[in-house]
Structures are given as C-alpha cells and as structure tokens.
Design a protein around this nucleic acid. Structure first.
Lengths: 280, 280
DNA sequence: TTGACGTTTGACCAACTGGTCATTAGTATA
DNA sequence: TATACTAATGACCAGTTGGTCAAACGTCAA
C-alpha cells in the first residue's frame, strides 16, 4: 500500500473517532508512523487531505448507487437493492460515514461543502429517477417530498447503525425502509417542498461529462499499474470515444469491466452518463 | 441584561455561524465587547459555557413540549400542536438549533453528549406517550419504530428550514408531518428497532424529581428578582411540598404560573412530574 | 481626600496549530 | 567507490488556543 494510502486510512480513522477539527496533522503523522514532512509530500494541506478523502469515497458511492438503480429489474426490486447497497456501503466504510456525517452538518470550508452537495445531488438524482419509476403518476413536487422524507429516514437509521454497537440485521432494516417508502409514496396527499427549495443543481445536462473530461480521468488512472483487462479497456475506450457516435454496445461492455474494479468505478459512472446522453 | 446573558447570546450566534470548535474565547469576548478576564468571571471555561447554553435552552424546550403533549385535547390535535411547537421553537431559537445540530453529531465532550442525550430522551418520552395515545393498539416496538421515523422526518425538515433562507409556511409543514405520522403509525407492518437499541434511559421512575431537588432549583431561582406573582408562587410551592401528599389542585395552579414565565419553565416541568407521580 | 473593595483589564503563559525547508538517509546508476 | 537522485526527517516558524493574574480602574464611605 502506498504511503498516501496509508495516510488516508489513518486519517479517516482519526477523523471518525475524534472529529476533523480536533485531529491535527501531527496526530495523523504520528499514528501513521511518518514525519510531518512526509505528509506534505503526499498532500498539499489538511484541506487537500479532506477533499481527497471525500472524492475517493463519494465517487465510489455514486457509481455503486447508480449501477443498482440502473440495473434492468422491476422497480421495487431496485428499491430494495438501493437500500441494501446504501446500508452495505455504510457498514463497509463506517469510518468514512461517520466523518461524512459531521462534515455534512458543519463543513469547515465552503468549497468542501459544495463538493459534498455535488455528490449528494448525484445520489439524489438516482433516487429520484427510481421514485419516478416506482410511482409514475407522481408530480415533481410529490417526488421531491418523498425524496426528502426517505433521506431523513435513511439518515436516522444510518446514525443508529453507525453509533450503536449492535449486530444489525440489515435485510430487516431494508424491509422496513421499503415498506415505509411504499406507504409514503402511495398514500401521501399533502406536500410542502418544491424543486428549488432542495436545489438539485445537477439535473441540467450541462453537468454531463464530456469526452475530454473522460480522457483526463483515464490519463490520471494510467499513472498507476492496473490489471491487464483494465489497461486494455482504457485503450478500447479511448478509441471508441474518437468516433462521432460511440457505439452503446461497446460502451456497455466496457462499463461492465470498469464498475467491477474499485479504482475505475467513477470512470464507469462517467462512461454510463455519456452513454445515456447519446441515448436521449 | 446581565453580562453573563450578553456573553451567552453572542456565543450562541458565533457558535451557530462558525461552529463551536472554530469559535475561540477571544472571538467571543471581542464580539461581546469585554475582556478575556471578564469572560472567566462569568464562566469557568469554554466547556462550562457550552453546558450552560444547552441547559438554558433544552430545559425550556422540554417544558414547552411536555406542556403541549399533556394539555387535555384530542390526541390528533396534540400531535398537530406538538409539531407546531417544535417548529416554532426552531424558528425562534434558530441559532441555538444550529449549534445543537452540530453538537449532536459530534460532541466535543462525553459529558456534554450525555447531557444532550438526557434532554433528548425527555422529549422522546413525551412523543412516545403521545403515540401511545394516538395508536392505542401499538406494541412497544411499533411505537419505538414510529418514534425514530418521525424524529428522522423532523430532523431533515428542520435542517431545510434552518439552513434554507426561505419564508417557510410552518402550518403547511405541520400538515405534511401529521399526515406522514398517521400514515406510518396506522399502516406500518414491519419493524426493526427495539427499546434497548434506542436506549431511552429516562423511562424508569428513578429519574423522577424529588422534592428536595425542587427546593434546590427554587433556591437557585431566588437569587434573582422575579415578578410578584412568581415570588409568591415559590412560597406557596415550598409550603405545599412540606405536606405528606401535596394537593394536585394546588400544584396545577402553581404549574400554570410557572410555565408562563420563561425562567421558571423548567421548574414547572419538575413540578408536573411530581404531580403525575403522586397520581399513579 | 483618603483608603478600601469589588470589577475589569490585557500582557503573559505554555501548549499546540498548520506549514516550511535545510539537512540527511537511502538507493540506483556509472 | 563516487555520483546523482529522490524520499524522508524534524527543528523551526509565526500564529492561535484556553486559561491566569498582577495591576489598574471605578465607586463608594469615612
């Protein structure tokens, strides 16, 4: 594991345990077993460290959630899978989730707050499209209201899971959440929220990735070694993106390889977005 | 306004705006327009300041909520009043609410966390009794599950209100919350949470206040001047508590005076608890 | 005017913060 | 072995933190 990776992991642990503000760089370096100077070889600043942590994890989250929601299944199976995926990610990356929870409530920095809101909006968008599939007759206002309610439920259940040392029965929790979602989605009659009040700034197509952005991401990834299959995928992807109209069949195959390998999850998400755009 | 009061108010504002950790004592003293030494004449430490802020507000909150839930009305009117009261308190004390939100997520101190959980549990208890009145056939598990769900909804709507600059229509939000509560309360079939998982440590009677505790609170209050009626109420209350069995009729009258005057709200709550105990 | 007494000040403290950089250690090549 | 390179160190910096305390201030009665 690279030095940078080591620092990242120690930092997340400390951030989760003591809070971000309360964790000093000396604290991190001592726990990692390196000198202060070494830290600044890997990260430009404490803020930079926090940003990298958020990027690393949230990109995975977004890609994973997006895949679950876009897998061709019945809508209610998808809903179940969504909750499952969410809770599993929570358990798997509990330290990050704890850190995320506090940063979300009180961000040390405007820029970081925006970053969080950006990823949050991407996930919201996935959930929203799922709701529109589940309850086709819903108005936009209904969907937004449901979205917020479900987020509230997920958040409080997540908090319980994270901060309560218990062998949790996630499949049971999923059942409970699905039931509540269906109840609220089918029978709610009064609504308060509107689109502008929750501001999901990512709904416009202006946010869709361009091929050049994807090329940048690939270049970044190629700075490190990856399995044969992945390296090959990069090459094919580059070629396919040269075309005026990249062929969906090809992209989908590549997507399959990329989503299955953690470091390229975000790339897979970007490819998928391109894909759906050409679709429309 | 006393110097202490001035400091408290400035501190809450700063805590709400910049976060608790990020706000230094120098920051507070400069904003209040006093010297550092003067701060330490009113508070023993920064931690002490935070504790006092929490106590001041949460005692009011608990008393106000408890009154709403125990007013003799139809259960669904109570529910509506509960949400109303909650949202109004939120708007009225927005700065404290913001501070509370962050401290709840990541407390700088174990002792403060316990304090927060204590007051939280008191409010939970009020809500729980209301649910049991609304849905008499519910099992304990159902009630707990509903409690957590509603708390999740309240929290996310609160967050929207607090951090979104909008002229919010609280009566509309109350409608929405009432509808969702009724939906979830009446039709939920699957449950996950149990009493021990949310641990409401205040349910046992061991937590009920003793008359001697009340005497201490009165003494504390009498260090400052209060309206004639209140001073008189103190005297009558003292006498009544001397009796083997304080008379409900008298206590209820006194309660009416105490709940209406902010500094004695907490005392009114304690008196009410004594009252209901002798009841049972 | 004096002196006594509580209030208020702000320079001062040690500890710690995020961040820098001359120096050193380690390693690969010639 | 000598050279050239990067990787790593930790003393050091200026600034800030929560907290203290001798000294100055204000306000009385004598």
């Amino acid at each position: 594991m690279s030095k940078k990776q080591q620092i990242l992991e120690t930092a997340i642990q400390l951030f989760a345990e003591y809070g971000i503000e309360a964790t000093s760089i000396q604290h991190i370096t001592k726990s990692t077993g390196i000198s202060k100077g070494a830290f600044y070889l890997s990260f430009a600043s404490k803020e930079d460290l926090i940003k990298e942590i958020i990027d690393t994890f949230m990109k995975q989250f977004v890609a994973d959630i997006d895949r679950v929601v876009n897998t061709p299944l019945l809508a209610d199976e998808k809903l179940q899978n969504y909750f499952s995926a969410h809770l599993n990610l929570l358990e798997k990356h509990a330290d990050f989730a704890k850190m995320y929870a506090q940063e979300q409530m009180y961000s040390i920095n405007e820029e970081i707050l925006e970053k969080l809101m950006y990823y949050d909006a991407l996930i919201d968008r996935s959930l929203l499209s799922l709701f529109q599939e589940l309850f086709p007759l819903q108005t936009e206002q209904q969907a937004i209201d449901l979205l917020v309610s479900i987020k509230g439920l997920i958040r409080i259940y997540s908090q319980l899971i994270l901060f309560h040392p218990y062998p949790h029965d996630t499949t049971r929790i999923v059942e409970v959440l699905v039931e509540k979602t269906m109840l609220l989605g089918e029978h709610s009659k009064t609504f308060y929220l509107t689109m502008e009040m929750v501001k999901l700034p990512v709904t416009s197509e202006s946010q869709l990735p361009t091929t050049s952005q994807i090329h940048v991401v690939i270049e970044e990834l190629q700075k490190e070694r990856h399995p044969e299959l992945i390296e090959e995928t990069f090459e094919v992807l580059r070629e396919e993106l040269q075309r005026e109209h990249p062929r969906q069949a090809v992209l989908q195959g590549l997507y399959g390889h990329l989503i299955a390998y953690t470091p390229t999850k975000w790339l897979s998400y970007l490819v998928k977005q391109i894909d759906t755009k050409k679709d429309a």
